[in-house]
Amino acid sequence: MKKQLLFILAAVFLLNIISCKKSTPSEGIKIDFTQSYEDAALALHSAQQKYEEALSGQVPEEIEVAKAALQKARLNYMESKKVYVSKGGEANAKYENYLETSSKALEKDPASQGSQTQTPVTPVEQVEDAAKAVGNEVGKVVDHQAAQAVSDVVKKADLKKASEKLESEAKSTVNKTKSEVKKTSDDLKKASDNAKKSADKELKKAKEDLGNLFK
């Protein structure tokens, strides 16, 4: 009877110890918070990948759904991290990178860039746009050719003007030279005539003096 009583008391004591261990915060509870934190991080990474895929598909409806899921996953991760850190855990650098890259992914939102929400372009509009582009290029070529033609005309006009100027200056120089040569020639002829007259006069006087001497 005493043995049975001791056995019952020992069993109750062991149950009390086990119960106290379960009610006391332990590593088991910390692991639960860690698992929750890890799950939130993996869910964030998965949501980001799906959002990237939706962006590649360029379907506005799918992009909006994936965007909403990614934003919710970000909030869940940040809340889970807050609880995890408050219980003594440390933020994982890899998971923080998930958060940062997800933020960058949301910056690619075509709605904010206006690239995916534009009105779809019809084939007719595409042809018109192509025609306008070709027209613009042709216009540029024509403008360039016209400018080149004008430039050539100007160059030719300038060249002609320069040629005429040179010709005029050459003629002026020739005429001036002819005038100077003629003047010089006239001066020489005049000087020669004067010298001849003076010589004739002197010779005549000498003859007269000689004739008077023999009279």
Rank of each mutant, 00 (worst) to 15 (best):
V138N: 07
M78E: 00
S168C: 03
S86G: 09
T184S: 14
A54D: 07
M78V: 00
K204C: 06
M78D: 00
E53G: 04
S115L: 02
A133N: 11
K82W: 00
T24Q: 13
D158C: 09
K67L: 08
G89Y: 02
A40Q: 10
G114N: 01
D209W: 01
L14P: 11
D109M: 01
M1E: 14
I8M: 14
Q148A: 15
I18T: 04
V65I: 07
V150R: 06
K82P: 00
K190E: 10
K205Y: 08
G135C: 03
P60D: 05
S19W: 07
A131L: 11
E61I: 07
V85R: 00
V12E: 09
V121L: 12
L75H: 11
A47M: 11
G211L: 01
S115G: 01
S103P: 04
N194F: 00
L210N: 04
L70D: 01
L42V: 15
N212G: 12
T122Q: 00
S23V: 14
I17Q: 03
K82A: 11
E128M: 14
E208S: 12
Y77H: 02
A149T: 09
L106G: 03
K189H: 12
Q49V: 02
V12F: 10
A131T: 05
K2N: 08
L159P: 04
D193T: 09
E53P: 01
S168R: 12
N194P: 02
K160P: 05
K87M: 07
F214S: 11
E64S: 13
A54W: 05
A146R: 14
N97A: 07
K178Y: 15
A105C: 08
A133Y: 04
K201S: 08
A68D: 06
E38G: 03
K197I: 07
L42C: 12
F13M: 12
P60R: 05
A41Q: 12
D39A: 15
G89P: 05
P60M: 07
E169I: 04
P25L: 06
A40S: 14
S172C: 08
G57W: 02
E27L: 13
D193V: 02
L159D: 14
V127A: 13
V121D: 06
E164Q: 04
Y51H: 06
A10F: 15
K201A: 10
Q145A: 13
S179T: 11
A11L: 15
A170S: 12
D200R: 02
S46H: 14
A54S: 14
Q48I: 02
N175P: 08
D39H: 13
A111H: 02
E53N: 08
A195G: 08
I29V: 09
A91Y: 01
N194H: 08
K165A: 07
V85A: 03
T101C: 03
I29M: 09
A93S: 03
A146H: 12
I63Q: 10
V12A: 15
Q145W: 10
T173I: 03
K207Y: 09
D209K: 04
L213P: 09
K183Y: 12
L213T: 12
Y51S: 01
T34G: 07
K176C: 15
K82V: 03
V174G: 09
I29R: 03
